[in-house]
Simulated scan of single mutants.
Amino acid sequence: MELALILPPWPNERWKLALQLGVTHAVTTLPFHVAGGHQASNPPGVPQPVVPHDVPPPEYRPWDFMPLLLMVQRFREAGITVSVIEASPPMHRARLGLDGRDEEIEWVITLIRNMGKLGIPVWCWNWMAVINWARTSTTTPTRGGALVTSYDHELMERAGPTVYGEIPAERLWQNLEYFLKAVVPVAEEAGVQLALHPDDPPVPSLRGIARILITPEALQRALDLYPSPAHGLTFCQGTISTMGVDVPHWIRHFGRQNKVHFVHFRDVRGGPTQFVETFHDDGQTDMYEAMKAYYEIHFQGVMRPDHAPTMEGEPNTEPGYMMLGRLFAIGYMKGLREAVLKTAAASVS
């Protein structure tokens, strides 16, 4: 079990902070070529274009071999291993089953094959159509005035349907099966683990767009669509917790099947339709029991802190992803891991 941080594809102070923390595994995005070396992203909850205006030209597609190779080498030469890619080529046509989905699937296949060539073991992906993770506030005060993201479904629904209208759940299930049949065999051949992220927030519909991966049972259904050692989960503790279930129980459930390929270690207070993010030691989940469950299932992948509060002195320009809260989280996670390992060793002796 290794701890990791999400780091940008180009070196900055966060790379050095990670190394100073003793973190040598990176979760990173695709190296989109934009000004300043940073990929712009929509705020949480804003619909994504089905035909993205920023798809790179054929001569620079960040999922091709050379951009990925150069990125991996940058990390390697800094003493950091790229363990997870947590980004994708455009996939909304694939999710919605529109014309052009096969081209998008080919882009994904290219990414997976190149990850295999470069020894990047895990791809974190999701099946949230049109709207990715959603929040209705990025400035909710928490302990000591730190800022967290929060969600109120009634507020979100006031926006009304998106321009894509009503998208039924069964359409997304059918398109997911089509996608898996095309992609999982490639991942098996490439030696890459696919880590499917649950829908965040886990509500049945978001502005008319169905959300299908909103319960542990639904995640199991997705895994059963195409059984394979390569097809597993990003176990996002915060999202699972908002489902109102016992998080350690479900770690063990999926872990016994070897389906936990990657972990987002975070916590919340609340349920699917109304919740707030928290400091990692201040939520509704027993985080020690969660860490203990990963030990019990012999989890061998990486876990990273996710959605940490913005702390004093930080600008909150990347809500959930500023650095100070994640530094706290890594220390907390290291402490939990050490406690679990020493307790287990003591019980054996």
Results as ranks from 00 to 15, higher is better:
R326N: 12
A182T: 01
G165W: 07
P202Q: 06
G79R: 03
G97L: 08
Y164A: 05
L233Q: 10
E188A: 00
V260F: 03
P62W: 03
D286F: 04
D199Y: 03
N258F: 00
A87E: 14
W173G: 13
F299P: 03
T139L: 02
A344G: 09
V55P: 08
L336G: 04
M128Q: 14
H231Y: 12
T317N: 15
M323T: 15
P216Q: 08
L341G: 04
I297T: 02
Y151I: 04
M303H: 04
F235W: 05
G313P: 04
P204K: 01
A4T: 12
P161V: 00
S347F: 04
K292M: 05
D286M: 00
I167T: 12
G144Y: 10
M71E: 09
L180V: 03
D99N: 01
V84A: 12
P305G: 02
M66E: 15
T343G: 15
V163N: 10
G255M: 08
G283R: 09
E166F: 05
K117D: 11
L21C: 13
M128L: 06
L155E: 13
P305F: 03
E103A: 14
M1S: 10
P8W: 06
R304W: 00
A308T: 07
F279N: 12
P8D: 14
A344P: 09
G37M: 10
R76K: 15
E289W: 02
W15Y: 07
P67Q: 00
G244A: 05
M156K: 00
A169D: 09
R95W: 11
L147Q: 13
R158L: 07
E189C: 07
A159H: 14
F275P: 07
S228G: 07
T28W: 13
G116F: 06
V247T: 01
T162Q: 08
Y226A: 01
F65A: 12
P89R: 12
H253Q: 07
W173I: 09
P216N: 14
K292Y: 08
G238T: 03
Y295G: 01
W10S: 11
T239W: 03
S150G: 09
W15C: 01
E296R: 05
Q73H: 09
E318F: 06
I85T: 15
R93Q: 10
D224C: 02
A222M: 02
